[in-house]
């Protein structure tokens, strides 16, 4: 993980100089990706909205005092979203009975449900059923395309432990899809 060539540094420098354009650049570059991360971790786009709002408020405060060289700004943003998502999941578990948690994913409108492929919905269901750490590992490596070293650092794991989590996550998902008659490779 080399932070000296962090592509966000020019935008951060603009923010440090009081230029709001720097914030716009960071937002354009990261909002969609981080929102997708939070949505996949929380299975709720409404919760992802709130997580992103908190994360970017922190980013605006952090950017002027950001010190290059320790980590990439985007890695730090991933860490913030990951931590905020974990907090939300913990709060859900504390306040809701288990069966309610399983039901609390966003409800699709009839139009969305109609347009959404069965396979996508099954993957979503499969992700929801994975243990939290496995889901985090898979989302970071597969969907966010972080390197194994970056993902292991975010999850505070060794690369070997990350690899083991990933293998279990993919195996679990494959089994979930098989169980729904949507084995990978079947007709899409």
């Amino acid at each position: 993980m080399n932070s000296s060539d962090d592509p966000d540094l020019p935008a951060i420098e603009r923010i440090r100089n009081g230029d709001a354009g720097g914030c716009r650049v960071l937002l354009e570059r990261h909002l969609d990706r981080l929102h997708a991360l939070a949505t996949r971790l929380l299975d709720s786009s409404a919760d992802a909205d709130e997580v992103c709002q908190d994360a970017f408020m922190r980013a605006w405060q952090q950017a002027p005092k950001w010190q290059a060289g320790k980590a990439r700004f985007s890695t730090w943003l991933h860490q913030v979203v990951l931590n905020l998502s974990r907090d939300r999941l913990r709060a859900r578990r504390a306040s809701l009975p288990l069966d309610a948690i399983a039901e609390m994913a966003d409800e699709d409108t009839p139009e969305q449900a109609h347009g959404r492929a069965d396979r996508a919905q099954s993957v979503r269901n499969g992700l929801r059923q994975l243990p939290e750490r496995q889901r985090e590992a898979l989302v970071l490596c597969h969907f966010q395309s972080l390197s194994n070293i970056e993902a292991a650092a975010l999850l505070e794991l060794s690369v070997d432990a990350l690899e083991s989590l990933l293998a279990r996550a993919r195996k679990g998902l494959r089994a979930a899809l098989d169980g729904q008659g949507l084995a990978p490779g079947a007709a899409t």
Binding site: L31, D32, H35, A36, T39, R40, S45, A48, D49, C52, Q53, A117, R119, A120, S122, V123, R124, L127, L138, H142, F143, R170, L173, R174, L177, L182, P184, T188
Partner: peptide, 17 residues
Amino acid sequence: LDEALDQYLPAPPAPAL
């Protein structure tokens, strides 16, 4: 399995956010 995973694309955030 990668192809199946890639079909889950969450909706992008609303412009209001």
